[in-house]
Design a protein around this nucleic acid. Structure first.
Lengths: 338, 338
DNA sequence: ATGAAAGCGCTAACAT
DNA sequence: ATGTTAGCGCTTTCAT
């Protein structure tokens, strides 16, 4: 145990009361310039820092934000966290990270940090919780922000990109390249991203007067292995197709693997497009076409909204939801001219 | 503001004293089975969770560990964090992340979370701080753990891999492949990793009776661009060499880029080996030889040591430092037979 | 402009 | 086995 110095130590040494020290520390009332100077000096001398727990208890704030993500060590989430941490630091907030490993139990468990006041607010990145579950918490007046999907609740700020819109763009690009039979590789079925990307895919087909063929839909659970196996299933089924739109880059990597194994040329025989603009997409051969999302900005934006709401106790509806632009990046894997 | 429920609410509703509620909550003394049951029931009914700040203040613990890393969104650090978070969660600890962006000021600032008791312990991953600076903090009895480098201070647990050892392995492998003029691409000069990897390189040269040529040493600041530019400088200098040992995969990626630009075949004309086993190394063409480090295990291990020390207030010297095995992974970029 | 004192919600020492 | 009470270190009325 350290013999920490407390506010009374500073006070007595400076010849003032604890209240005055608190005042200069927090700029919370007028303090005579001379005494202020003296107090500051003693604080420096003693290297005093206010005990966080006492401060939190008394002020009912922790200056801490929690972030719940499915996997910290996935570059997509790591970038979002980066944005959150950087913005939070600039506003003097700390960040507690919670890695659920895609486990909903853990997600719920971490939410307790909000209830027991360990954090002032919780950011959920592509959460598994339903709108109702979210509503229950928000209605108890706890602060929550969402990254990666739209939420209807008027008290919940959310930041995301328009899955439907960029999915349509991907399909349009593929159609322009001459493809008519396009596979859609979905992530796990209950993820909102899977659903919306599929929706965009279907809408685009209709717009281009292409038939929707259910046998061209496969699920790859958002991971490489899933993509690999889905691709093998497609090959087994002997359905005819010339392009694959994978709902993320991970699965596209799996498609690459299967193609390598079966000697299928990309993009010569099969074009491939992914989503996320994972770093690997630029380095793999052939370079993978993908959709880039402004991950760091998403992180920064949600912090902005949450803190605004925390401080002003309100958020106009038009400020509540932010949909950021994503961008289709065409690379070798879907460009026959290359 | 929510009307939170407090321990007194639970107590009165259960017809007992706050002390008893605290006892069943913390299993800190014998409580009659019947009353215990009753208290638990009320707790569930009310959805009571103990206020964290009050608990922290009273118990002088926060059950929180801070982690300071140079860049969260770098897979090497993200993996270490993953290991830390998972182990911490299993022990009921939370994790606050601090991203310094390689800024020493920020590193020092984050250490204040230790002093002001926001966290019980702080893990520094490849810190920029000197041993003396660390010692100053540790001598005030604050708990610190280090990942990624050895520290002499007997009170500081540390976990790392043996840079010298694997560097020698890398050079030996290259020599066995017939290389005699091997470039060493260093990271920024003040990083301990740069220094030790260089040391291993030099020792290996001596062991294999190869001359040490200063013109074969270049600095690439641990990033891709630095590697690219270092490689161009080497090419400009017109020195002769047939292999490059880059102190991390990032720089190796830069070497790849330069070689592509100048039409140099890897490994035909120049062999390349990196360090870190970044995911990209398996996907790039040609596949990059590299050194794999057990990142997640490093994270888990340091948490183990720190918590042991926190609870037992001591750590035997033989338990204090852990050097984990790394492994040279030979892939296409340094194997002429492939 | 400054000080005295109450109290944030919990745990632990002491009493019963 | 259980209750009473002091106090963790701070902020914030309320006085002066």
């Amino acid at each position: 145990m350290t013999m920490d110095i407390k506010i009374v130590d500073v006070a007595s040494r400076a010849g003032v009361s604890p209240a005055t020290v608190s005042r200069v520390l927090n700029n919370t009332a007028n303090v005579n310039a001379k005494t202020k100077e003296k107090v500051m000096e003693v604080i420096r001398e003693l290297g005093y820092l206010p005990n966080a727990a006492a401060k939190n208890l008394r002020s009912q704030k922790t200056m801490t934000i929690g972030v719940i993500v499915p996997e910290i060590n996935n570059s997509y989430y790591a970038e979002i966290i980066k944005g959150i941490e950087n913005k939070a630091y600039a506003q003097k907030y700390k960040v507690i990270i919670c890695d659920t490993g895609n486990n909903k139990e853990k997600e719920l468990d971490f939410l307790n940090l909000l209830i027991n006041r360990t954090v002032d607010s919780m950011i959920l990145v592509t959460p598994q919780l339903s709108e109702e579950e979210l509503a229950r918490i928000v209605d108890m007046n706890y602060s929550i922000g969402i990254v990666g999907r739209y939420v209807g609740n008027g008290k919940v700020p959310c930041v995301f990109t328009d899955n439907v819109k960029f999915s349509k763009e991907v399909v349009r690009h593929l159609v322009e390249q001459g493809h008519k039979e396009i596979v859609f590789l979905s992530g796990y079925a209950d993820a909102i991203d899977s659903f919306e990307r599929l929706e965009g895919y279907m809408k685009a087909l209709r717009e281009h007067h292409l038939p929707f063929l259910p046998e061209l839909i496969e699920n790859g659970d958002f991971n490489e292995r899933g993509g690999y196996e889905a691709m093998k299933r497609l090959l087994d089924k002997k359905v005819s197709f010339s392009a694959v739109y994978a709902a993320n880059d991970e699965m596209a990597l799996g498609v690459y693997k299967a193609c390598r194994e079966f000697n299928i040329a990309i993009p010569g025989q099969i074009a491939v497009v992914g989503v996320d603009n994972d770093r690997i997409s630029r380095y793999i051969t052939p370079k993978l076409s993908t959709v880039s999302q402004p991950k760091i900005r998403m992180g920064r934006a949600i912090v902005d909204k949450i803190l605004h709401q925390l401080e002003h106790d309100s958020l106009k509806e038009e400020d509540r939801v932010l949909v950021l632009e994503s961008e289709l990046i065409v690379r070798e894997s879907s460009d026959i001219r290359l």
